[in-house]
Simulated assay, not measured.
Amino acid sequence: MAGIRKTSENIRQFILRNVEHNPKNIATLTARKYRISRQAVNKHIKRLVEQDELLAQGATRNKHYSLKLLEKWEHAYILDEKLAEDAVWRADISPFVTDLAENAIDIWRYGFTEMLNNAIDHSAGTKVHVEASKTAITTKIVIYDDGEGIFKKIQRELALNDERHAVLELAKGKLTTDPDNHTGEGIFFSARMFDDFAILSGGVRFSHVPNEMEVGLSESQKFQSGTSVFMMLSNDTKRTEKHVFDSFTSGDDYGFTKTVVPVRLAQYGEDKLVSRSQAKRLLARVEKFSTVIFDFDQVDSIGQAFADEIFRVFKTRQPEVELVDLNANKQVTQMIRRVLSTGWRRRVSRHVSLPRKGA
């Protein structure tokens, strides 16, 4: 009996986890997955509807399902010197997630307080709105303010040519426009703790998928003034705050020593990564880290000048910084090897981690 109950629970969890992307054919998908009849699947779906975990809409062929909203809460706060992120957490958000496991609560505490503090200290807005919602599978929180806009502010403070450059700087970490009071680590680590994390401001969207080590930049429909931060986490996540920190820190002082730089963020539209100026944009501030991982995911090719600026010129100037390439295809790897071979002929020491030939 215990085995039957476990199988039934697995089937229902599968339905709940996949229904959002398969609202009309979830029964067919589940039947194929577990090799059971649609009639058997429909019994599980009916049970989930009765338990208020699934919402059924439509009839017969038009019938579709979605996760039922179990709880929703929202509130607007005045952005002034009286507002404190820890007080909001204790009074309003902690009770909303109190039924979750300790590791999930820890992630929510870190991410929420960091993002609300950013709005308080940096947005220059007048109010901030918080929305929280929960289903049987996930919890979501959105924080949006009416301030200047995070990308516009970073562009202004760092004298960048484009708001999109701010996304690249955020992706690296250790970015702050107020170094006396902030470390610039909040967004970097928060993005890696949640299953889905995104920031929208102006016409630019920054998003992160932790399991794929992917950071995205996209043009979005012109967003209202201010900044919107979206965070979503599975209610039964196994991820821990400590695991995320351990992935990028080292030493007795637990220092933030490693970063991942998504190389594709240095190119826009149909641009090719060929110039030294693009490489210098990618290299800005990376000397703050002891290990820099350049992620070449979705990068088809790079030019000689681009590769030379990173893997020879920068490495010569900053020999103590370890440079590691990740997800480089054959063309990218060959270009990196080419500039490295030039450097070796010049007897410049190298500490770049490269795939073995033929790997």
Rank of each mutant, 00 (worst) to 15 (best):
T183R: 15
H122W: 02
E131H: 15
D121P: 00
S133V: 10
R164Q: 12
V229K: 07
V128I: 10
T126Y: 00
I141T: 03
H122L: 04
T177M: 08
A191T: 05
T126L: 03
T113N: 10
F197W: 11
M193F: 07
G216S: 14
M115Y: 00
A104S: 12
D178A: 09
G111C: 15
G111M: 02
S225A: 14
F206G: 08
D162C: 01
E219C: 07
K172R: 15
V215Y: 11
F223Q: 15
N161T: 04
L160Q: 03
V142F: 02
E212C: 09
G147S: 05
K222T: 10
V209K: 13
V142L: 11
W108P: 08
L168Y: 00
N161C: 02
G125T: 00
I141A: 07
K152M: 06
I137E: 13
F151E: 09
A91F: 00
T227I: 07
D195E: 09
S123C: 05
D178Y: 06
L100I: 00
E148S: 11
A136R: 10
G226I: 06
A132H: 04
T183A: 15
I93H: 03
F189K: 06
N161Y: 03
A124T: 01
N211V: 04
N118K: 04
F96V: 01
L160A: 05
A198C: 11
K140V: 11
I143F: 09
A91K: 14
K172N: 09
P210D: 02
M115S: 12
K127G: 06
L160F: 06
I150A: 09
G111L: 02
M193I: 06
I107A: 01
S201Y: 09
V209M: 08
I154C: 08
M193S: 04
I187F: 13
R164F: 04
D196R: 15
S225Q: 14
I137G: 02
Q221C: 01
T135C: 08
F206D: 01
E148C: 05
K222P: 07
N161S: 11
T135Q: 05
A136L: 08
E219V: 14
V97Y: 02
I107P: 04
L168E: 02
F197H: 11
G216N: 15
K153G: 04
D196V: 06
F188Q: 08
E163C: 12
M115E: 03
E114C: 09
T126W: 00
R205N: 07
K172M: 07
L217V: 12
A171N: 11
I141C: 11
Y110D: 11
I93Y: 01
F223N: 15
F151T: 08
N103S: 12
K152E: 11
V130C: 08
S225K: 15
N103Q: 13
A124S: 13
A119C: 14
S218K: 14
L160C: 02
I143E: 04
S201M: 12
K140G: 05
G184Y: 11
D99P: 00
G147W: 04
Y144M: 06
M115W: 00
T176C: 10
E169C: 06
F223W: 14
S123D: 03
L158D: 04
D146E: 04
V130W: 03
L160V: 04
G186Y: 03
A101W: 00
E219A: 13
S225F: 04
A159S: 14
A136C: 10
G111V: 12
